[in-house]
Each structure stands twice: as C-alpha cells, then as structure tokens.
C-alpha cells in the first residue's frame, strides 16, 4: 500500500475529508474533557470565574461528603429500577406489536411517541397528571379505592422516587421496543414451526426460541440504556429538581447544583469526573461488544 502514489494521494484526500470532524471533535469534546479534569483540581467561584489550585482537595471533600454518596446511591437506584421496567415493558410491548393486530402501524407509532417527544413536554404532562388537587392520577386511584387521600406524588418520599422511575420507564421503554421489534422480524418462522411440531407450547417457544435469539440485542440495549439512564438530567431535574431536599438528587443534578447553585465550578467538575469514572466500566464494555459485532459483520 505504501509504495503506490495513488494510494498515498487517496489517504491524503481521506484525511482531508475527516479533518472538519476531527477539528470539531477537538474543540468541543476533547478540549472540554481535558479541561474538566483540570478544573476539578481548582476551586472556582462561578460568577467571577476566579479560583485557586487545591489539588485533589475536591475529591477528598467528596469522599467524605454524605451528599455525594447519597447522590450516587440515588443514581444507581434510579438507573436499575427504571431500566428493569423499561426492559420488561419494552420486550412485552415488542412481542405484542409483533403479532397481527388491527391498525398495527398506528399502534406502533402511538407506542413509540413518548420516546420522541421532548422531555419538557413529557414532564409538563406528567406534572399535570400528578397534580395533587385536579390531577387524573389521584382521581383514578381514589375511584379505584387504592388510596383514601390524594397523594403528593412528587413532593414526598418514597413517592417522588417512584414517580420519576415510572415516568422514566414510560419515556424510554419505546427504545427497547424499537430494538427488539427489529430483531424479532429476523427470527425465521421455521424455528417456531419446528417447535410446534415437536409439541412445544407458547411459553416454552418463548423461553427456548425467542429469548435466546434476543439475547445479543438485549445485552446491547441494557448497556446503552444503563449509560443513558445513569446520565439522565432533564427528566429528574424538571420533575422533582432533586427534591424533596436531596432525596431524588442524582449525580448529574449534583453537578448542576454545585456549579450554578452553590457556585463552585471546581467541585462540580470533580463530581462530573467521578460520575464519568463510574460510567466508564459500562462504556468500555459497550465499546468492546460493538467492536466485536463490527468485526463479525465485516467477515
């Protein structure tokens, strides 16, 4: 390859085409990333942007800060619960929409819509549904006899945590539906026919055929959604603002509060970097899987 002058010219052309991308990446991603690491070694007053070097002081502070550990715990709790619901409902809905039902494409669009709608819209609607006096949720549950008094959905614990988990599941389960539905369509019907002839019931066909076929796509979906749920800001910030007090405050919310509420950009960066370190294991695992898929598909 190296000897051919044409190849060399092509390599130069290829590099020129990717150059704008690399430039933008360096300016808006690589530089800020390095800068965040650097900032976390300072204490910086946000309004004046003046600060002094404190070394690992911010990190030492965080290790001893109950608020940091509470936020980390909240983040994990939120991620695991909402992710579990997303997967269960997502797979169930995908199986359902895979069947022949009337107006199937309309049904699919309606199911997918929560995922595409802005988080702001989703939150406004849910805050109206959760309204303590005139909200439909309280009304329906009172009518069904599940509760005797209207509930405070977002302002008290554990309701606030349960509410954000539910809304998160509602907003993001369609992603699982999209992925699983696409995979379901590629499972050959012959597998099911053969199982039927062998006398397998509906349940055992699901466990022995569908689930193993879905395994790979589910692993990818779980990893991706875990990463995205872990870093979710909008939904939680807009629904509860991290409250009551810090009961639903996750790490991204703590970063925002430290930087723009408590005006300490250095410490906020330290929280952000710590958060990224926790996420890194998931990210590396995902990159490995994606890389393996890639090599297989090129073979």
């Amino acid at each position: 390859m190296s000897g051919n002058p044409l190849d060399k010219r092509y390599a130069v052309l290829g590099a020129m085409l990717i150059a704008p991308t690399v430039l933008v990446f360096c300016a808006v991603i690589v530089y800020p990333l390095v800068s965040a690491l650097y900032l976390s070694l300072f204490t910086i007053f946000t309004p004046t942007l003046r600060g002094s070097f404190v070394g690992l002081g911010n990190y030492a502070y965080l290790v001893n800060s109950p608020e940091f550990w509470r936020s980390l715990w909240n983040t994990l709790l939120w991620t695991i619960c909402t992710l579990a619901l997303q997967i269960v409902f997502g797979v169930a809905a995908a199986l359902m929409l895979h069947q022949n039902i009337v107006f199937r494409s309309l049904a699919r669009s309606l199911i997918l819509f929560p995922y595409f709608v802005s988080t702001v819209v989703a939150v406004l609607v849910w805050r109206w549904l959760f309204n303590d006096l005139y909200g439909v949720m309280n009304h329906l549950m009172l009518m069904a006899g599940l509760i005797k008094m209207p509930l405070d959905w977002l302002g008290s614990m554990p309701n606030a945590m349960i509410s954000i988990i539910l809304v998160g599941a509602w907003k993001y389960f369609p992603f699982v539906v999209i992925a699983v539905l696409a995979r379901l369509q590629t499972i050959p019907d012959a597998l099911y026919e053969a199982a039927k002839i062998d006398g397998a019931g509906a349940w055992s066909r699901f466990v022995d055929i569908t689930l193993p076929q879905l395994r790979d796509v589910l692993v990818v979906v779980v990893l991706l959604r875990a990463i995205w749920d872990f870093k979710e800001f909008d939904l939680i910030y807009l629904l509860t603002g991290g409250g009551p007090i810090i009961a639903t405050q996750t790490l991204p919310l703590m970063v925002y509060k430290d930087a723009f509420g408590l005006n300490d950009m250095g410490r906020a960066s330290a929280v952000a970097v710590s958060m990224m370190l926790v996420m890194l294991s998931f990210m590396v695992l995902y990159l490995k899987l994606a890389g393996r898929d890639e090599r297989e598909s090129q073979r």
Partner: peptide, 25 residues
C-alpha cells in the same frame, strides 16, 4: 477514530458543559 466517535456518543453532557460554559463566556 471510529471507536472514538462511538465513545463520545456515550459521554455525559454534564461533564462537557462546565468547560463549554467557560469557553462561551
């Protein structure tokens, strides 16, 4: 490079936002 693209796709905004804010100011 291709791997880096995928990696940046997963990065949390809150990590980039503080330096970006400083940069814009």
């Amino acid at each position: 490079l291709a791997q880096m693209v995928l990696f940046t796709y997963l990065l949390p905004s809150v990590v980039l936002i503080l330096p970006l804010y400083l940069m814009m100011v």
